[in-house]
Amino acid sequence: MNQIDETLLAQIADLHGTPEGAYNIRKDSALAGRSNTKNITIETKADQSGIDIHIRPDTKYEVVHIPVIITQSGIEELVYNDFFIGENCDVSIIAGCGIHNDGHNRSQHDGIHTFHIGKNSHVRYSEKHYGQGNGGGEKIMNPQTILYLEEGASVQLDTVQIRGVDSTKRYTKVVVAKNGEAILTERLLTHGNQTAVSEMDVFLDGEGASARIISRSVAQDHSEQTFYPRMIGNAPSFGHVQCDSILMGDAKIRSIPAITANHTDAQLIHEAAIGRIAGDQITKLMTLGLTAEEAEERILSGFLK
């Protein structure tokens, strides 16, 4: 593991050295390390690129790390990761992709993550995307996250992309069953000429299902962002979509939400706001002794926290 690898792993997974518990590290399209535990088994797929992760029922408080790093310019890959999580589990899965591109060719990681979450299991899934490197080569990530929740299952999905990724097209689909719950938090900062598109479909299919989409984004310079948060209530259920964006420079943001109720007891709420940082927020922090730049930075970091 070299310096660049370590930086990338620290950025995307807060990892310093080899993680504890189960893990699978993928570097430049090859396996760079793997560990299984009594309850968690990771296997390379036979028919396509990617891994299967099996988590036994009743597994509690275990963490799985599955970071991906790309350090060679010009790698383009499509990876399938499938998670099979048994009943009554309580686990955290930390994924993420870091690209270091010093070359002129594009580096691209498209990850398709599918989760089958068993009855009454709780899963925290976090995915950080990060890019660095000074070559002209583009850094592209197109993740898809598909989650099927069984009765009483819940998921907390945190996705973060702060700087460095030139182009991203993200798709998230969640199907929530009876008494299940999904909380999707998305944080995004684009700059330069970056583009980001995020599409989400959340299906509330069982009685008592609930979901929240919380999206916070900052678009700087000439970057562009487009959001399609969609919530579909097919049962007596509750759904809340909340999107907030800060616009800076000459950036553009479009937000095209849809809430669809196919059941009279589906209660769906949507809130969205796009705007600049309010001038009085900056001046307020300046009266506390911050410079205008420090104030702006503080407001953004709080907003994306």
Binding site: R216, D244, A278, D280, Q281, T283, K284, L285, M286, T287, L288, G289, L290, T291, A292, R298, I299, S301, G302, F303, L304, K305
Partner: peptide, 30 residues
């Protein structure tokens, strides 16, 4: 403004702004 703040002048706004993402603790610490 910043320089005056550093010299020890403070001003509590008549209509203070709100901040999404900053907690009461954060403002007190700043």
């Amino acid at each position: 403004i910043t320089e005056r703040a550093k010299l020890g002048i403070s001003y509590g706004f008549q209509q203070p702004p709100r901040f999404k993402g900053l907690r009461v603790r954060d403002l007190l610490e700043l």
